[in-house]
Design a protein around this nucleic acid. Sequence first.
DNA 1: AAGTGGTCTAGACCACTCC
DNA 2: GAGTGGTCTAGACCACTTG
Lengths: 240, 240
Amino acid sequence: MRRYSRRVSVPLHYVVKTRLVELVEQLGEGTALPPERVLAKDFGVSRWTMRQAIRELIADGRLRARQGQGTFVATPKIVQPLALVSYTEALRAQGHTPAREVVRFDEIPADDVLAEQLAVAPGDPVFELERVLFADEQPIGLETTYLSVARFPSLREVLEPTGSLYRCLTGQLGVEFGEGEELVETVIATPREAELLKATQQLPMLLLHRRTRDSAGHPIEVVRSLYRGDRVGFRATLRP
Amino acid sequence: MRRYSRRVSVPLHYVVKTRLVELVEQLGEGTALPPERVLAKDFGVSRWTMRQAIRELIADGRLRARQGQGTFVATPKIVQPLALVSYTEALRAQGHTPAREVVRFDEIPADDVLAEQLAVAPGDPVFELERVLFADEQPIGLETTYLSVARFPSLREVLEPTGSLYRCLTGQLGVEFGEGEELVETVIATPREAELLKATQQLPMLLLHRRTRDSAGHPIEVVRSLYRGDRVGFRATLRP
DNA sequence: AAGTGGTCTAGACCACTCC
DNA sequence: GAGTGGTCTAGACCACTTG
């Protein structure tokens, strides 16, 4: 029945957050926190306020909640390069274990936007390859790639679905990458996307939208990658 | 292919969100929505559930809430280049009106991390220039720049505080930029940062951490930029 | 003063995991 | 079945903006 009678310039959940950070810093990675209900009682706040604080620390990548299990101190974020490199090789270079799982690999008719981006006619068949990206057996990203079927007719036979698409294109199909463009923004995942990433609702995600071309300027692929904002960061190299 | 279990029920706030999107799409930019309490009643849900849906649409950049005024349909996100270019010029090139406001311009002693990054000794004086970045008179970013005082002793005299630091360095101080590095991640702003950006709590932000060097490889500046995730996206050019 | 969004409480039930 | 996090309700007060 506490009333926040006192005028607080700082929201209560932020005060709780800063106190919770102190607790988190005393614990090691992977350590379980007390249950929300217990923490709320200890801090003298409602469970809702406690959850606000926890949610912020989850979004910041410091905590990790698993339904039915508890809340745990998270491991540091994985930093990936923002460049035309293989996911597999980039992750290995940082000492992590990469993996992929195919969600779907279909041929769909290109809508107007996709057709324009891939330089095909609307309605032309396009490969849609959707894969969940794992790092150390944790899902961290959902990658959807679109390629022209007419341009890569042998893709289904040549590509090992859980292998590196980048390597397949450059190696087996003789594609030479030219300049590409990548857009980065934050979004909230749909329930389907959140489930595939084993993330809870309301978690900020990093959405990368990539368009690559070959050295002659012809479109190769359009990629929509959704990464868990709590688990992943990106590194870009700036050239003068 | 792995089977992903299907969620039995979609969260109510997501159902509300999708219905709210339909409403938003019928309205023009800048249009006011009905008050939360009215919307909640219309949709037959509690105000909390209504706010979850609204919060997601705010994070996605489709809505915009102003305390005491109402909730409005937002304008599209501003896309900035992820490159060594002037904020002023980049924004002008996209048809927006850039502006800056100095929050503080101090000399502080370098801590160990900063000293290492700027190649000075710990305790050495370092400029700390914190500015709010505006686009079309709306605050969209908070930029904190650190430079060695010893390296740029005349900075206070030369720099117009609301002008382009990039232009000042390259033009008046004869600095030649070499390769730089930029880290991108999502974070939740502190109350102070949220207030400076006139954003509400709990809004996902894009944090950019930049380190630049001159053509000889000596550190020029360390920049911490916090951008409103609901208002800004970034574009990077990928080179093979 | 009225009305808006922002924060907070207390309590309930649901979905998932482990015993 | 017990315990965890996830969702949802109803109601209250706070802080801000405008008439």
